[in-house]
Design a binder for these strands. Sequence first.
DNA 1: TTGAAAGTATGATGGCTATAATATTATATG
DNA 2: CATATAATATTATAGCCATCATACTTTCAA
Lengths: 197, 197
Amino acid sequence: MRYDAEHKRKTRLRVLDEAAMVIREEGPHRLGVAGVMARAGLTHGGFYAHFPSKEAFVSEAIAHMFEGGPTAMLEKVKGAPPREALTGYIDFYLSARHRDSRSGGCPLPYLAVDAPRLSQASRERYARGVAHLTGIIATHLAALGRDHAEDEASSTLAELVGALTLARAEPDADRSDAILERSRAHLKRRLGLEADQ
Amino acid sequence: MRYDAEHKRKTRLRVLDEAAMVIREEGPHRLGVAGVMARAGLTHGGFYAHFPSKEAFVSEAIAHMFEGGPTAMLEKVKGAPPREALTGYIDFYLSARHRDSRSGGCPLPYLAVDAPRLSQASRERYARGVAHLTGIIATHLAALGRDHAEDEASSTLAELVGALTLARAEPDADRSDAILERSRAHLKRRLGLEADQ
DNA sequence: TTGAAAGTATGATGGCTATAATATTATATG
DNA sequence: CATATAATATTATAGCCATCATACTTTCAA
C-alpha cells in the first residue's frame, strides 16, 4: 500500500469524531456530509470512500458517541466506594460544565428526543446505552445496600437526563443553575449519599 | 370583505394546529412548509399570505403548542384537592397513552433538546412553559404542606420529562413500560401521594 | 347577477444537499 | 527516482425546500 496502513483508519475516526460533535451541536438530522468533512479538513467527495451512505454514517457516528463518553467514567471508578462513585457522577452529570459542553458529554440527553426517529440500529444502540448506565447505577446502589436498586436507578437516570436537558433549554443562567442544583441536592438526599448519612 | 371574516383566521389556526403536530412528530427543524400546508388541505403557495417566513411560523407554532396542551389540565383541577390533582397529573404524564400520542401531549419533552437551537422568542416561550408548570406543581405541593415546594417541583418536573423522553426512546415495549412505572411509583412515594399516607 | 377583493393555487427560481463519476495528489515500494 | 495505487479533491447531477410572482377561484355587497 502507498499510504500508511493506518492513514485511512485514522481519517475515518477523525470524521466520526467530528460527526459525534456535530450531532451533539446540531442534532442527528441537521448534520450535513459536506460540513462534517470540512470540519475534518477534507472535502465532501471522499466521503463515500469511507461510508456507504449518510444514514449508515449517522448510525455509526451514534454508536461512536457511546464509546468512550462519560458513561465510561462510572466504569472507571467501578472499584471505588459506591458512595463516592455515585456522588461524583451526579456532581459531574448535573454540573454547569457538563451542561455547557455542547459538543461533548453524555449522548443520552442529546439523542433522547430524536431516538424514535432514528434507524433501528441506532435506537437499539441507544437502548443499550440506557440499559448499561441504569445497570451501573443499580450496581452501585445495591452495593450501598439499597433495596429495589434497579427501580431506583431507572428513576434516577430519568431525573439526571431530564434535569440536564431542561437546564440546557433554559436561557436564563441563574434559573438553569437552579435546575441543576435542585436535582443534584434531591438525588443525593434521595439516594442517601449525604455526608452525615 | 368577500370571504367570511373568520375564514382566514380559521385557516391560519388549522395550519398552526398541523404545524404543532408535525413539530411533535418530526421536530421543529424537519418541518417543511409544503408538508404542513398539504396536511391542512392547502398548497404551499398560500403560505406567505399567512406567515412572513418559515422561522416566524415555527416560532408561532411553538407558542401555539403551549396554548391548550395538557399543562392546562393541571390548571383545570386547580380547585381540586392537591393530592388528587398531582396524582392524576403524574398518572397521565407517565402513562402509555401520553407516551404513545406522538402528535399530542406536553410540549416540553418534544422541544427540550432542540430548545437551545430555536429562536430567542421560542426559547423564552419554552422557559415560560417550564416556569409555569413548575409553579403549578409547587403550588399543589405547598397546599399539601410540603416544605421547599419550589425545589421539589423543579426536580419532579425533571423526572417527569426525563422518564417520558426515555420511555419514548426505548423500542422494547416492556422496558418502556417499566421506565414509566418506576418513575410513577417513585414520584408518588416521594411526594407522599400514596393512598395510605 | 356581477364585479371586486380576499384567499388560494400554479409554477418558477435559487440555494442547499446527498450521491456519484472522474480527476488529481500523495507516498510506499521497487 | 519512477511508478502504481490508495486516498482525497473536483465537478456534475438530481432532488428537495423556502420563497415569491402571478394566475385563478371563491363569495359577499351592490
